[in-house]
């Protein structure tokens, strides 16, 4: 038997019971402008509290990674940013989420319009069972972004190019998207998101269903997209967070434990819990 000193769940909870979510005055200084901001964001699924007052600033045109063990609230938090939780029964949300200083939960904000500005890529590639072209063209069509076929063709081409998929699919745009490989499907979903020209792209574990080569391609893509878009990515893969992000936020049990420059979080974590997590001692 190999002797491994494991931290049991009860020990961990006991030792971290005093951990609190980061107050506003301890948020790190960001080099650039803030794109999205949450203040004291709380969320309940029916009676169960899933987020305990999160304060976070998301920097513009940078990649912010959310890490943390399963069930820590990172995906829930991510979905608050474009109000995807609205459609779930029994969800109650308190606190502020702002995009360029405007409260996205304000009555005057249309969630449909918000999701065009804050796009989302999901864990499992979910292309529509339509042609590759129609997948990318769907967003521009419903938002009326193209007035004629030529414009639409141009949007589809540039979106696929930005997603690094154009050369692979330019000769088979009419084929079913569901016939592509998983990695291609995920890049298509990214192209579909880009096609509506969002300002922020939320990615919920975009590589968890992909093989290492496809993962590498998507990571390269994320790095390229940073020039034009603000990206928030949830990942279970710590190396991935270290590779692609500039800012890393560590969540635990619905609380934001630590947020800082990625290099700082991985090399010199400020909290013992963060250190335990990134060194593989729990989670």
């Amino acid at each position: 038997m190999v002797a491994v000193t494991e931290i049991t769940a009860s020990e961990r909870d006991a030792s971290h019971a005093d951990a609190v979510t980061i107050p506003v005055d301890r948020l790190p200084e960001l080099g650039g402008p803030v794109k999205m901001q949450t203040r004291d964001l709380k969320l309940w699924y029916s009676d169960k509290q899933a987020l305990a007052g999160i304060n976070l600033d998301v920097p513009e045109r940078q990649v912010t990674a959310f890490i943390g063990p399963s069930g820590c609230g990172k995906t829930t938090f991510l979905k608050c940013l474009n109000r995807m939780n609205d459609t779930i029964e029994g969800v109650r949300i308190e606190g502020d989420v702002t995009l360029d200083g405007t409260d996205v939960y304000d009555r005057s904000v249309d969630p449909v319009q918000l999701r065009a500005r804050v796009g989302m890529v999901f864990q499992k590639p979910n292309p529509f069972p339509k042609s590759i072209y129609d997948n990318v063209a769907y967003g521009p069509r419903i938002h009326g972004l193209a007035t004629n076929r030529g414009d639409l063709d141009a949007i589809v081409e540039s979106s696929l190019q930005r997603a690094g998929l154009w050369n692979e699919v330019k000769d088979r745009l009419g084929e079913m998207a569901t016939g592509m490989s998983g990695g291609q499907q995920q890049r298509l979903c990214i192209a579909r998101t880009i096609a509506v020209s969002p300002e922020v792209i939320l990615m919920d574990e975009p590589c968890s269903a992909l093989d290492p080569i496809s993962t590498a391609r998507v990571e390269e893509l994320i790095d390229e997209l940073r020039d034009n878009y603000t990206i928030v990515i949830v990942t279970h893969n710590l190396q991935q967070a270290a590779r692609v992000s500039q800012l890393t936020a560590f969540f635990h049990l619905g609380r934001l434990i630590e947020v800082n420059d990625t290099a700082e979080v991985f090399q010199n974590p400020g909290e013992s819990m963060t250190r335990d997590y990134i060194t593989g001692r729990f989670g």
């Binding site: 995807m84 999701r115 529509f128 769907y138 419903i142």
Partner: peptide, 23 residues
Amino acid sequence: VPPSIREAALGIGASPVQVVSHH
């Protein structure tokens, strides 16, 4: 119809009625 299709459409800004009628 899998929920992922509804999410996909909602995620790029389709309204709930568009999600139903288009997908």
